[in-house]
Design a binder for these strands. Structure first.
Length: 359
DNA sequence: CTTCCACCGGAAGTACCGGTAA
DNA sequence: TTACCGGTACTTCCGGTGGAAG
């Protein structure tokens, strides 16, 4: 946080600060640290009469260039319709606003790597260049990325401008997670409910799995709920292991339920074909899908689109595939369920498909 | 060594939606 | 009213391709 503070400090002296690139996996405290630091700066700025505005954008959640810019514009007090304007128009309005006032502006672009992968670095380039044309206002950009190879996606000009400073957040070690958990245990549980062994177990599981503090806390909470429901006075190691499974199953269930119709149909096909014929090929899946769709009197998607949906299912981890080569008989992917079948079935059952699935 | 299958996946185009600006 | 915007969800077209069969 001190590091980030030092980078941003020039904003308080009405100077242009360096842009920064921040790396770190999810749950390592990037967002919290930036928000905290920026609040401190905002306080100081108030005392000095500097007009400081922080705009935090999660680029992945916003999804598109237009909406990313819209969020920045709104932080500056502009109202931007959610559609209708040209993207460049939004950028123009932002620059106009900054040109006609004196603002120290910090733009935080979270999960920018995901964004750049689908939209390229044009937007980043334009944002980094904005300072040059602004006489009175200053803009600092902090780009936050989950993975380090992100650099390779950037044009050298953008990269050099963006990486004037770099900060890296390492995943938490088991010891660090232990500290974090311990601090929360004393707030959230009665004395003696959570033993050191349980904290150690949760910390060890989390550190080896992901090093994500948020998920570690979640794991402990779920374990606590399980123990409570079982009428226990203390959380046991078994509760923790059960919690691991439960969290996983709940995630699978949620993902399945929120899938669009045709993805769910495909998942149902993979599930039912997988039973008799262990690992159907993409061609077989498509044929069964066609039959299913015909039976349900639904419009049918093309093979191309179906292949894309199957890829998406694989991406979210519900399905896994292996390419196999049959020589003269071509090449194909064999697909099967990668997630626990139980929550998948439960999620699909709340649907029209029940009848078809039972065949 | 060549052939040829059963797909893969990039690219461009279409239709529609809900909107703005002049 | 007209021209145009971006986003989503698809379709159409088509040039690959790994490796066993032949």
């Amino acid at each position: 946080m001190r590091n980030i503070g030092e980078i941003l400090a020039p904003l308080l002296m009405n100077k242009k600060p360096s842009n920064a690139l921040i790396y770190g996996k999810t749950g390592t405290g990037k967002t919290a640290s930036i928000k905290f630091t920026s609040n401190v700066i905002e306080e100081k700025a108030k005392g000095r009469g500097t007009n400081f505005i922080m705009s935090y954008v999660n680029c992945r959640l916003e999804g598109t260039e237009y909406r990313t810019l819209a969020v920045i514009a709104e932080a500056l007090g502009l109202t931007i319709p959610f559609t209708g304007l040209a993207t460049n128009e939004v950028l123009k309005r932002i620059t106009e606003k900054l040109r006609h006032s004196e603002i120290s502006c910090l733009i935080v672009l979270d999960e920018v790597d995901v964004f750049v992968r689908s939209y390229g670095d044009d937007l980043l380039y334009q944002l980094t260049r904005m300072n040059e044309t602004l006489p009175t206002s200053r803009v600092a950009i902090i780009a936050v990325s989950n993975d380090i190879s992100f650099k390779e996606l950037l044009d050298p000009r953008v990269l050099s401008s963006l990486s004037e400073e770099e900060v890296i957040f390492k995943p938490y070690t088991a010891d660090e997670i232990k500290d974090i958990l311990q601090a929360r245990v004393s707030l959230g549980f009665n004395d003696g409910v959570v033993s050191h062994e349980v904290v150690n177990l949760v910390a060890a599981l989390s550190a080896s799995e992901h090093g994500d503090a948020r998920r570690a806390l979640n794991l402990l909470r779920v374990a606590g709920e399980i123990a409570e429901r079982a009428g226990l006075l203390k959380i046991t190691a078994a509760n923790v292991r059960e919690a691991v499974l439960k969290i996983e199953e709940d995630q699978v269930f949620e993902i399945c339920r929120s899938l669009p119709l045709h993805s769910r149909l495909l998942l149902a096909v993979v599930l039912s074909l997988g039973k008799k014929n262990k690992a159907p090929t993409s061609g077989e899946i498509f044929t069964s899908y066609k039959q299913l769709v015909e039976k349900l009197k639904l419009p049918e998607l093309t093979y191309r689109r179906v292949a894309m949906l199957l890829n998406e299912l694989e991406m979210v981890g519900l399905v896994e595939s292996k390419t196999v080569n049959l020589g003269r008989h071509g090449r194909t992917r064999k697909m099967r369920l990668a997630a626990a079948s139980d929550p998948v079935r439960r999620a699909l059952q709340s649907d029209v498909l029940v009848a078809q699935l039972l065949e």
